[in-house]
Computed example of a mutant assay.
Amino acid sequence: MKAFLALLIKAFLGLIAFSLLWVGVYRFLDPPTTYLMIRDRLNGVEVKQQWVGLDEMSRHIPRAVIAAEDSRFCEHRGFDVEAIEKAMEANEKGRKLRGGSTISQQTAKNAFLWPGRTMVRKGVEAWFTILIEFLWGKPRIMEVYLNIAEFGRGVFGVEAASRHYFDKPASKLSRQEAARLAAILPQPIQRDAASPGRYTRRYADRIASRTRVVANDGLDGCIWK
C-alpha cells in the first residue's frame, strides 16, 4: 500500500513538473498546434493559421474581445469572481446558467486541453489558468488567445480570420470588423463575420460600442508594453 501511495505521489509530482515545463516553454515558444486544429486536420479540413504578435494587430481586435468576452481581463488573476457569483445566482433562481469563463481560462483550454465540461477537465483548466497568469502575464495570454482561437472551420487566429473574412491583414482591421470577429467567437462554425445574420450583426454593433469604452477607460492597459 505504501509503495502504491508513493507511486501515486511521484506520478502527481511528475505531472505538476511537466505542466510547469510545458507552460514555461509556451511563454517563449508559440504553440505549434491545438486540439481543435488536430481535430480539423484529422477530418480532412485545411487548417489556416498565421502567427502575429500583438504589435502586428489592429488594437481594435484585443479591445473587441475584451469588450465581448472579458471586460475585467486586466483586473482579475484568471478568474472573474463577480461573473461566477452572478452565474451561481442565476442558477439558483432557475434561470439559464450564465458563462463566467475568462479569456485566461479560454486560453488555457485552447492551448493545453480539449473541450468538455467534466469536473476533472475544469479542474485541470483552472490549474493551467493559474500557471499562465503567473508565468506568462496578460500580454502573452492575449497574444496566444488571439492566435489560436477558432474563427471558423479550419480558421484559427486573427490573422487567418482577417484574411479569410475581409481579405486583409489583422493590422488593418477596422473597429467594426474586429467587433464582427469577436461576435462569432461563441459559435465560430455557425456564424459568419463577412456576411453576418441579424443577431450577429446586432451583437457586433454592441461590441463595437463597448470597444470605445474599453479604449477610453483603459480596460486594455495591461496588455500594452
Score class of each variant (00 low, 15 high):
75 E>I: 06
76 H>R: 02
78 G>A: 04
82 E>K: 06
83 A>H: 01
84 I>V: 14
85 E>K: 09
85 E>S: 11
86 K>Y: 13
86 K>C: 04
87 A>H: 04
88 M>E: 14
89 E>W: 01
90 A>V: 01
90 A>M: 10
91 N>Q: 08
91 N>M: 05
91 N>G: 05
92 E>M: 12
93 K>Y: 09
93 K>I: 08
94 G>H: 00
94 G>M: 02
94 G>T: 03
94 G>W: 00
95 R>T: 13
96 K>M: 04
100 G>L: 04
100 G>T: 02
103 I>W: 02
103 I>L: 13
104 S>W: 01
106 Q>N: 11
106 Q>A: 14
106 Q>Y: 06
107 T>Y: 01
109 K>C: 10
109 K>V: 10
110 N>H: 11
114 W>S: 04
115 P>R: 02
116 G>I: 00
118 T>V: 06
118 T>H: 04
119 M>K: 10
120 V>P: 08
120 V>A: 14
121 R>M: 09
121 R>A: 11
124 V>T: 15
124 V>S: 14
125 E>H: 06
125 E>L: 03
127 W>M: 08
128 F>L: 14
128 F>V: 12
130 I>G: 10
131 L>I: 02
131 L>T: 03
136 W>I: 04
136 W>Y: 11
137 G>K: 00
138 K>A: 12
138 K>E: 09
138 K>W: 03
139 P>N: 06
140 R>A: 10
141 I>M: 07
141 I>Q: 01
145 Y>G: 12
147 N>E: 10
148 I>M: 05
148 I>C: 12
149 A>H: 01
150 E>M: 12
151 F>L: 14
152 G>K: 00
153 R>L: 14
153 R>Q: 15
156 F>G: 10
156 F>W: 08
161 A>K: 00
162 S>A: 15
163 R>M: 09
164 H>K: 15
164 H>V: 11
165 Y>N: 09
166 F>P: 07
167 D>H: 15
170 A>M: 04
171 S>P: 06
171 S>C: 11
173 L>E: 06
174 S>I: 04
174 S>G: 15
175 R>Y: 05
175 R>W: 05
177 E>C: 11
179 A>Y: 00
179 A>L: 03
180 R>P: 12
181 L>A: 08
181 L>P: 10
181 L>N: 07
182 A>G: 05
183 A>R: 02
184 I>A: 06
185 L>P: 13
185 L>R: 04
187 Q>Y: 15
188 P>R: 03
190 Q>G: 09
193 A>P: 15
195 S>P: 06
198 R>W: 14
198 R>F: 14
198 R>Y: 12
199 Y>Q: 13
199 Y>R: 13
200 T>G: 01
201 R>T: 15
201 R>E: 15
205 D>K: 12
206 R>Q: 13
207 I>D: 13
207 I>H: 08
208 A>F: 02
208 A>Y: 00
208 A>S: 15
211 T>V: 15
211 T>L: 11
212 R>W: 11
212 R>N: 13
212 R>E: 14
213 V>K: 08
